[in-house]
Design a protein around this nucleic acid. Sequence first.
DNA 1: ATACTGATTTCAGCAAGTGCAATCACTGAT
DNA 2: ATCAGTGATTGCACTTGCTGAAATCAGTAT
Lengths: 199, 199
Amino acid sequence: MPRWEPDGVGRLQAAAFELFAEQGFERTTVAEIAQRAGLTQRTFFNHFADKREVLFGLGSEFQEEIVREIAACADTLPPLDVVVRALQAASDTMFEERRAAVTRRQEIIDANPELQERELSKQAALIHAIAAALHARGLDPETALLTAGAGMLVQQTAVRRWTQPAESRPLRELLSDALHSLRTVATQTTDQRVVPLET
Amino acid sequence: MPRWEPDGVGRLQAAAFELFAEQGFERTTVAEIAQRAGLTQRTFFNHFADKREVLFGLGSEFQEEIVREIAACADTLPPLDVVVRALQAASDTMFEERRAAVTRRQEIIDANPELQERELSKQAALIHAIAAALHARGLDPETALLTAGAGMLVQQTAVRRWTQPAESRPLRELLSDALHSLRTVATQTTDQRVVPLET
DNA sequence: ATACTGATTTCAGCAAGTGCAATCACTGAT
DNA sequence: ATCAGTGATTGCACTTGCTGAAATCAGTAT
């Protein structure tokens, strides 16, 4: 028999997820989470840097996936398209099948400012990772950061719609839509009008 | 004689700013800040919701200024131009003359993850305020949020350069440049090429 | 005079987070 | 089989952030 029940990290994540959903983030104590997972408060902090972090375990995998996709993408594509395609690929494998779970997680986060801060922080980290991946493809750092920011703007817009009950389309499509919306917003200008040129 | 020395809030902000610069955010205790300001820890928390908040006092004024500018802007301008012009106007009155102070503040924030999180949170709040102001002008909420996000992307890009030692141009110009960069990034596309149309 | 205001203080206490030493089933080497 | 090492877990003591409630008291209005 093993000395400890397996997958302590997973049990802590599950317990935290449940308790946050049941009674909210603030009214849940770390000791409480650990107790439900059959562990100690001290053990919780051995695995997670702080109370918030327990909700953001999947973030790093998502980031790695995206960086991989960007590195693997065709060289001829415009940078913003590269980013959005990477987001689409990662979405297919990591989001599409878990819509219910993702949505519930988002509700927990939306209900608490501290968690929102942490999520913004993770998004910022993702932006920098994307920018680094673009820079590795030869883009200058300034433009890379701007492009990464634009990409995450697209991602946020798409996910916001995807997690709404009325929406049933795949995230991949919503990403394409959001990219188109951003291009529309960015293209409208005073001193010049642009029109598509037939190829 | 007054019962208390005047401007307790200002003294707390100044003391915090100094201490954070001297020894960093983490190694500075709230009791320490209060002591340097000649007040109590409890009084600190009467004025600021938490230890981080003491660095973000000017944010709300900036937000109000921008919302005002957006509401006052000409109806014919494209939304993204409206946002950037508002940012330019607010920058002139609230940033341009304080470059040294703004830069030092930014250094403090850049040195600490918790402060970075709070700054991202403030930026998100600003995005929502801008989106609300755009929505009040008749833009649909979805597009308003996207446009506000694009505007803040421009802002971040411009401020990042403005706070670099090598840069000497006014923030107003850098905002124009960043807007142009964003338009360039967003305009490059695979399935259609766009060209300026002479008016 | 009197009551009221409001910024400040004191105090008691919870919860987050950390450093350190100890435990002890499991593992690999002898 | 034995023995030393590994590593996840734990207990404990401690600092710090943050809060609620009640008390203080100069200035102000009535």
